[in-house]
Protein backbone atom coordinates (compact mmCIF):
# COMPACT_ATOMS: atom_id res chain seq x y z
CA UNK A 1 0.00 0.00 0.00
CA UNK A 2 1.27 3.44 -0.82
CA UNK A 3 2.30 5.36 2.28
CA UNK A 4 2.60 9.06 2.12
CA UNK A 5 6.40 8.84 2.34
CA UNK A 6 8.30 10.06 -0.65
CA UNK A 7 9.28 6.71 -2.07
CA UNK A 8 11.72 6.87 -4.86
CA UNK A 9 13.97 4.96 -7.13
CA UNK A 10 17.55 6.01 -7.52
CA UNK A 11 19.45 4.48 -10.40
CA UNK A 12 23.18 5.02 -10.11
CA UNK A 13 25.72 4.20 -12.83
CA UNK A 14 23.82 1.11 -13.92
CA UNK A 15 25.33 -0.98 -16.68
CA UNK A 16 23.90 -4.13 -18.21
CA UNK A 17 26.05 -6.23 -20.49
CA UNK A 18 24.92 -9.27 -22.46
CA UNK A 19 27.07 -12.27 -23.18
CA UNK A 20 27.42 -12.82 -26.90
CA UNK A 21 29.71 -15.65 -27.93
CA UNK A 22 31.59 -15.58 -24.66
CA UNK A 23 32.15 -11.82 -24.54
CA UNK A 24 30.12 -9.21 -22.69
CA UNK A 25 28.75 -6.22 -24.60
CA UNK A 26 27.06 -3.38 -22.72
CA UNK A 27 23.47 -2.66 -23.79
CA UNK A 28 23.15 -0.10 -21.03
CA UNK A 29 26.11 1.82 -19.65
CA UNK A 30 26.40 4.27 -16.77
CA UNK A 31 22.77 5.25 -16.55
CA UNK A 32 21.79 7.40 -13.58
CA UNK A 33 18.20 8.49 -12.99
CA UNK A 34 15.96 9.50 -10.10
CA UNK A 35 12.26 8.74 -10.06
CA UNK A 36 9.94 10.25 -7.44
CA UNK A 37 6.41 9.28 -6.76
CA UNK A 38 3.73 11.36 -8.41
CA UNK A 39 6.08 11.75 -11.29
CA UNK A 40 6.24 10.33 -14.82
CA UNK A 41 9.74 9.90 -16.14
CA UNK A 42 9.91 9.09 -19.82
CA UNK A 43 12.83 7.21 -21.25
CA UNK A 44 12.85 7.88 -24.93
CA UNK A 45 15.03 6.52 -27.70
CA UNK A 46 15.04 4.36 -30.79
CA UNK A 47 15.16 0.59 -30.92
CA UNK A 48 18.40 -0.78 -29.58
CA UNK A 49 19.17 2.22 -27.37
CA UNK A 50 18.85 0.11 -24.23
CA UNK A 51 15.64 1.57 -22.83
CA UNK A 52 13.85 -1.77 -22.47
CA UNK A 53 16.97 -3.43 -21.11
CA UNK A 54 17.09 -0.77 -18.42
CA UNK A 55 13.49 -1.60 -17.48
CA UNK A 56 14.08 -5.33 -17.25
CA UNK A 57 17.24 -4.63 -15.26
CA UNK A 58 15.25 -2.71 -12.66
CA UNK A 59 12.78 -5.59 -12.52
CA UNK A 60 15.59 -8.12 -12.21
CA UNK A 61 14.28 -10.17 -15.10
CA UNK A 62 17.62 -11.00 -16.69
CA UNK A 63 19.23 -14.41 -16.54
CA UNK A 64 22.27 -13.89 -14.32
CA UNK A 65 24.22 -16.46 -16.32
CA UNK A 66 23.92 -14.40 -19.50
CA UNK A 67 24.19 -10.86 -18.19
CA UNK A 68 26.57 -8.76 -16.14
CA UNK A 69 24.97 -5.92 -14.22
CA UNK A 70 26.82 -3.15 -12.44
CA UNK A 71 25.92 -0.06 -10.45
CA UNK A 72 23.22 0.48 -7.88
CA UNK A 73 19.43 0.56 -8.04
CA UNK A 74 18.24 1.98 -4.75
CA UNK A 75 14.56 1.49 -4.09
CA UNK A 76 12.96 2.26 -0.73
CA UNK A 77 16.23 2.00 1.06
CA UNK A 78 17.61 -1.19 -0.44
CA UNK A 79 19.80 -1.90 -3.45
CA UNK A 80 17.74 -4.09 -5.79
CA UNK A 81 20.86 -5.43 -7.43
CA UNK A 82 21.98 -7.10 -4.19
CA UNK A 83 18.70 -8.90 -3.57
CA UNK A 84 18.21 -12.58 -4.26
CA UNK A 85 15.36 -14.06 -6.26
CA UNK A 86 13.05 -14.54 -3.25
CA UNK A 87 13.59 -11.00 -2.03
CA UNK A 88 12.99 -9.65 -5.56
CA UNK A 89 9.75 -11.64 -5.79
CA UNK A 90 8.47 -9.72 -2.75
CA UNK A 91 9.07 -6.47 -4.63
CA UNK A 92 8.04 -7.44 -8.17
CA UNK A 93 4.31 -7.09 -8.54
CA UNK A 94 3.91 -5.72 -5.02
CA UNK A 95 5.98 -2.54 -5.08
CA UNK A 96 6.98 -2.37 -8.73
CA UNK A 97 4.50 -3.24 -11.43
CA UNK A 98 5.35 -3.63 -15.07
CA UNK A 99 3.26 -3.04 -18.18
CA UNK A 100 4.43 -4.68 -21.37
CA UNK A 101 4.20 -3.69 -25.00
CA UNK A 102 2.40 -6.51 -26.77
CA UNK A 103 -0.70 -7.26 -24.70
CA UNK A 104 -1.55 -10.46 -26.56
CA UNK A 105 1.72 -12.24 -25.97
CA UNK A 106 2.06 -10.77 -22.49
CA UNK A 107 -0.99 -12.67 -21.30
CA UNK A 108 -1.10 -16.42 -20.80
CA UNK A 109 -3.41 -17.70 -23.57
CA UNK A 110 -4.69 -20.59 -21.44
CA UNK A 111 -5.66 -18.70 -18.29
CA UNK A 112 -8.78 -16.74 -17.60
CA UNK A 113 -8.40 -12.98 -17.36
CA UNK A 114 -9.59 -12.93 -13.75
CA UNK A 115 -7.06 -15.54 -12.66
CA UNK A 116 -4.23 -13.67 -14.32
CA UNK A 117 -5.13 -10.45 -12.53
CA UNK A 118 -5.59 -12.27 -9.25
CA UNK A 119 -2.23 -14.03 -9.39
CA UNK A 120 -0.36 -11.03 -7.99
CA UNK A 121 -2.81 -10.76 -5.11
CA UNK A 122 -2.26 -14.44 -4.30
CA UNK A 123 1.40 -13.85 -3.61
CA UNK A 124 1.44 -10.40 -2.10
CA UNK A 125 -1.67 -10.08 0.04
CA UNK A 126 -3.38 -12.02 2.79
CA UNK A 127 -6.84 -11.41 1.33
CA UNK A 128 -9.47 -14.10 1.47
CA UNK A 129 -10.65 -15.62 -1.77
CA UNK A 130 -13.79 -13.46 -1.71
CA UNK A 131 -11.80 -10.27 -1.06
CA UNK A 132 -9.52 -11.10 -3.96
CA UNK A 133 -12.49 -11.66 -6.27
CA UNK A 134 -13.90 -8.31 -5.25
CA UNK A 135 -10.55 -6.60 -5.78
CA UNK A 136 -10.20 -8.15 -9.26
CA UNK A 137 -13.62 -6.81 -10.21
CA UNK A 138 -12.69 -3.43 -8.80
CA UNK A 139 -9.49 -3.40 -10.86
CA UNK A 140 -11.22 -4.42 -14.06
CA UNK A 141 -13.68 -1.63 -13.43
CA UNK A 142 -10.93 0.85 -12.67
CA UNK A 143 -9.14 0.27 -15.98
CA UNK A 144 -12.42 0.92 -17.78
CA UNK A 145 -13.36 -2.51 -19.06
CA UNK A 146 -17.12 -2.89 -19.55
CA UNK A 147 -18.92 -6.01 -18.21
CA UNK A 148 -16.29 -6.95 -15.59
CA UNK A 149 -18.14 -10.08 -14.44
CA UNK A 150 -18.09 -11.51 -17.90
CA UNK A 151 -14.58 -10.41 -18.81
CA UNK A 152 -12.89 -12.03 -15.82
CA UNK A 153 -14.16 -15.38 -17.04
CA UNK A 154 -12.89 -14.82 -20.59
CA UNK A 155 -9.59 -15.71 -22.20
CA UNK A 156 -7.14 -13.17 -23.70
CA UNK A 157 -7.94 -13.99 -27.33
CA UNK A 158 -11.57 -13.07 -26.75
CA UNK A 159 -10.73 -9.40 -26.09
CA UNK A 160 -9.71 -6.56 -28.39
CA UNK A 161 -6.19 -5.13 -28.32
CA UNK A 162 -7.22 -2.10 -26.29
CA UNK A 163 -9.07 -4.23 -23.75
CA UNK A 164 -6.11 -6.59 -23.46
CA UNK A 165 -3.80 -3.67 -22.76
CA UNK A 166 -6.19 -2.59 -19.99
CA UNK A 167 -5.95 -6.09 -18.53
CA UNK A 168 -2.15 -5.85 -18.58
CA UNK A 169 -2.43 -2.54 -16.73
CA UNK A 170 -4.85 -4.07 -14.21
CA UNK A 171 -2.28 -6.80 -13.54
CA UNK A 172 0.45 -4.23 -12.99
CA UNK A 173 -1.58 -2.10 -10.57
CA UNK A 174 -3.25 -4.98 -8.70
CA UNK A 175 -1.19 -4.48 -5.54
CA UNK A 176 -1.00 -0.69 -5.85
CA UNK A 177 2.72 -0.58 -6.58
CA UNK A 178 4.74 2.51 -5.73
CA UNK A 179 6.44 2.35 -9.08
CA UNK A 180 5.10 1.36 -12.46
CA UNK A 181 7.29 0.63 -15.43
CA UNK A 182 5.43 0.91 -18.72
CA UNK A 183 7.39 -0.41 -21.70
CA UNK A 184 5.86 0.99 -24.91
CA UNK A 185 2.36 0.60 -23.43
CA UNK A 186 0.55 2.04 -26.44
CA UNK A 187 2.69 1.12 -29.42
CA UNK A 188 0.41 -1.72 -30.49
CA UNK A 189 -2.74 0.39 -30.23
CA UNK A 190 -4.77 2.79 -32.36
CA UNK A 191 -4.36 6.51 -31.68
CA UNK A 192 -7.72 7.01 -30.03
CA UNK A 193 -7.12 4.00 -27.78
CA UNK A 194 -3.58 5.22 -27.13
CA UNK A 195 -4.90 8.52 -25.82
CA UNK A 196 -7.36 6.71 -23.55
CA UNK A 197 -4.71 4.36 -22.16
CA UNK A 198 -2.30 7.23 -21.46
CA UNK A 199 -5.01 9.20 -19.69
CA UNK A 200 -5.87 6.09 -17.70
CA UNK A 201 -2.25 5.64 -16.64
CA UNK A 202 -2.08 9.24 -15.47
CA UNK A 203 -5.30 8.88 -13.49
CA UNK A 204 -4.13 5.69 -11.79
CA UNK A 205 -0.85 7.33 -10.95
CA UNK A 206 -2.59 10.24 -9.29
CA UNK A 207 -4.81 7.89 -7.31
CA UNK A 208 -1.99 5.65 -6.12
CA UNK A 209 0.67 8.36 -5.79
CA UNK A 210 2.94 6.12 -7.79
CA UNK A 211 5.96 6.95 -9.88
CA UNK A 212 5.93 5.88 -13.52
CA UNK A 213 8.79 5.07 -15.83
CA UNK A 214 7.38 5.41 -19.32
CA UNK A 215 9.50 3.81 -21.99
CA UNK A 216 8.65 4.88 -25.50
CA UNK A 217 9.99 5.84 -28.89
CA UNK A 218 7.12 8.23 -29.52
CA UNK A 219 8.04 11.85 -28.85
CA UNK A 220 4.39 12.88 -29.03
CA UNK A 221 3.51 10.50 -26.21
CA UNK A 222 6.40 11.88 -24.19
CA UNK A 223 5.36 15.49 -24.71
CA UNK A 224 1.81 14.71 -23.65
CA UNK A 225 2.52 12.65 -20.55
CA UNK A 226 6.02 13.00 -19.10
CA UNK A 227 7.20 15.26 -16.29
CA UNK A 228 10.84 14.34 -16.67
CA UNK A 229 12.51 13.02 -19.81
CA UNK A 230 15.69 11.04 -20.37
CA UNK A 231 16.85 10.62 -23.95
CA UNK A 232 18.89 7.48 -24.54
CA UNK A 233 21.29 6.70 -27.35
CA UNK A 234 23.50 3.63 -27.64
CA UNK A 235 22.98 2.55 -24.04
CA UNK A 236 23.57 5.93 -22.47
CA UNK A 237 21.43 8.80 -21.32
CA UNK A 238 22.53 11.69 -23.54
CA UNK A 239 20.17 14.32 -22.22
CA UNK A 240 17.72 14.65 -19.38
CA UNK A 241 15.55 17.34 -17.96
CA UNK A 242 11.96 18.35 -17.50
CA UNK A 243 9.66 17.75 -20.46
CA UNK A 244 9.57 21.50 -20.98
CA UNK A 245 13.34 21.76 -21.04
CA UNK A 246 13.73 18.89 -23.48
CA UNK A 247 11.05 20.02 -25.92
CA UNK A 248 11.55 23.78 -25.70
CA UNK A 249 15.30 23.79 -25.45
CA UNK A 250 16.74 20.54 -26.74
CA UNK A 251 20.52 20.65 -26.61
CA UNK A 252 22.16 17.34 -27.40
CA UNK A 253 22.64 16.83 -31.14
CA UNK A 254 20.75 13.53 -30.94
CA UNK A 255 17.70 15.05 -29.28
CA UNK A 256 17.72 17.86 -31.76
CA UNK A 257 18.08 15.45 -34.68
CA UNK A 258 15.21 13.29 -33.48
CA UNK A 259 12.87 16.23 -33.08
CA UNK A 260 13.90 17.49 -36.48
CA UNK A 261 13.17 14.20 -38.22
CA UNK A 262 9.54 14.25 -37.08
CA UNK A 263 7.03 15.23 -39.72
CA UNK A 264 5.73 18.67 -38.71
CA UNK A 265 2.88 20.90 -39.77
CA UNK A 266 3.80 22.66 -43.02
CA UNK A 267 6.74 20.33 -43.66
CA UNK A 268 5.06 18.85 -46.74
CA UNK A 269 7.37 20.38 -49.27
CA UNK A 270 10.62 19.71 -47.46
CA UNK A 271 12.62 16.59 -47.03
CA UNK A 272 12.60 15.32 -43.48
CA UNK A 273 15.86 15.47 -41.61
CA UNK A 274 17.75 12.18 -41.75
CA UNK A 275 20.48 11.35 -39.24
CA UNK A 276 23.58 10.16 -41.08
CA UNK A 277 24.61 6.54 -40.76
CA UNK A 278 22.82 4.11 -38.52
CA UNK A 279 22.77 2.89 -34.93
CA UNK A 280 25.73 0.51 -34.53
CA UNK A 281 25.02 -3.03 -33.36
CA UNK A 282 25.89 -4.05 -29.82
CA UNK A 283 29.16 -5.63 -30.89
CA UNK A 284 30.26 -2.67 -32.99
CA UNK A 285 29.38 0.03 -30.47
CA UNK A 286 32.24 2.48 -29.88
CA UNK A 287 33.50 1.77 -26.38
CA UNK A 288 34.76 5.23 -25.50
CA UNK A 289 34.29 8.82 -26.53
CA UNK A 290 31.07 10.42 -27.71
CA UNK A 291 28.94 7.61 -29.11
CA UNK A 292 26.98 9.99 -31.30
CA UNK A 293 30.11 11.41 -32.97
CA UNK A 294 30.00 9.09 -36.02
CA UNK A 295 26.49 10.33 -36.82
CA UNK A 296 27.57 14.02 -36.90
CA UNK A 297 30.86 13.68 -38.79
CA UNK A 298 31.05 17.40 -39.63
CA UNK A 299 31.58 18.26 -35.99
CA UNK A 300 35.34 18.44 -35.33
CA UNK A 301 36.79 16.04 -32.80
CA UNK A 302 37.87 18.90 -30.57
CA UNK A 303 34.21 19.63 -29.82
CA UNK A 304 33.78 16.21 -28.19
CA UNK A 305 35.02 15.10 -24.82
CA UNK A 306 37.41 12.17 -24.59
CA UNK A 307 35.26 10.67 -21.81
CA UNK A 308 31.88 12.33 -22.13
CA UNK A 309 30.13 13.13 -18.86
CA UNK A 310 26.83 14.79 -18.03
CA UNK A 311 26.95 18.57 -17.77
CA UNK A 312 24.33 20.52 -15.91
CA UNK A 313 23.25 23.33 -18.20
CA UNK A 314 20.50 24.74 -16.04
CA UNK A 315 18.97 23.30 -12.88
CA UNK A 316 17.75 19.78 -13.72
CA UNK A 317 18.80 19.92 -17.37
CA UNK A 318 21.85 17.79 -18.13
CA UNK A 319 23.57 16.98 -21.39
CA UNK A 320 26.26 14.45 -22.16
CA UNK A 321 29.47 15.49 -23.92
CA UNK A 322 30.47 19.00 -24.90
CA UNK A 323 29.58 18.66 -28.57
CA UNK A 324 26.20 20.30 -27.99
CA UNK A 325 27.76 23.70 -27.27
CA UNK A 326 28.53 24.82 -30.80
CA UNK A 327 26.40 22.24 -32.58
CA UNK A 328 24.81 23.30 -35.83
CA UNK A 329 23.12 21.19 -38.45
CA UNK A 330 24.98 21.14 -41.75
CA UNK A 331 22.40 23.32 -43.46
CA UNK A 332 22.51 25.89 -40.68
CA UNK A 333 26.22 26.68 -41.14
Amino acid sequence: MADEENHFLKIEDVSTAFKIQGKYYPAVSDVSLDIHNDEIVAIVGESGCGKSTLATTIMGLHDPAETKIGGKIEFEGQDLLTLNEDQMNKIRGAKIGMIFQDPLSALNPLKRIGDQIQEGLDYHTKMTEAEKKARVLELVNQVGIPHPERVIRQFPHELSGGMRQRVVIAIAIACKPDLMIADEPTTALDVTIQAQILDLLKDIQKENHAGIILITHDLGVVAETADEVAVMYAGQVVEKGSAKQIFDNPLHPYTRSLLRSMPQKDSENDDLYVIEGSVPSLQKMPQDGCKFAPRIPWVPESEHEAHPTMHEVEPGHRVRCTCYKNFKFQDEA
Binding site: E85, R92, E119
Partner: peptide
Amino acid sequence: SDYVRTARSKGVPTTNVFRHHILRN
Protein backbone atom coordinates in the same frame (compact mmCIF):
# COMPACT_ATOMS: atom_id res chain seq x y z
CA SER B 1 7.67 -16.16 -23.68
CA ASP B 2 6.22 -12.80 -22.81
CA TYR B 3 3.53 -14.25 -20.56
CA VAL B 4 6.16 -15.93 -18.40
CA ARG B 5 7.93 -12.59 -18.16
CA THR B 6 4.60 -11.06 -17.08
CA ALA B 7 4.19 -13.79 -14.46
CA ARG B 8 7.70 -13.15 -13.14
CA SER B 9 7.05 -9.43 -13.01
CA LYS B 10 4.02 -10.19 -10.82
CA GLY B 11 6.45 -11.67 -8.31
CA VAL B 12 5.47 -15.29 -8.87
CA PRO B 13 8.28 -17.52 -7.53
CA THR B 14 10.19 -19.52 -10.14
CA THR B 15 8.77 -22.89 -9.09
CA ASN B 16 5.24 -21.59 -9.37
CA VAL B 17 5.90 -19.88 -12.69
CA PHE B 18 6.96 -23.28 -13.89
CA ARG B 19 4.00 -25.07 -12.36
CA HIS B 20 1.23 -22.62 -13.29
CA HIS B 21 2.41 -21.20 -16.59
CA ILE B 22 5.11 -23.22 -18.31
CA LEU B 23 3.90 -26.72 -17.44
CA ARG B 24 0.39 -26.55 -18.81
CA ASN B 25 1.23 -24.51 -21.86
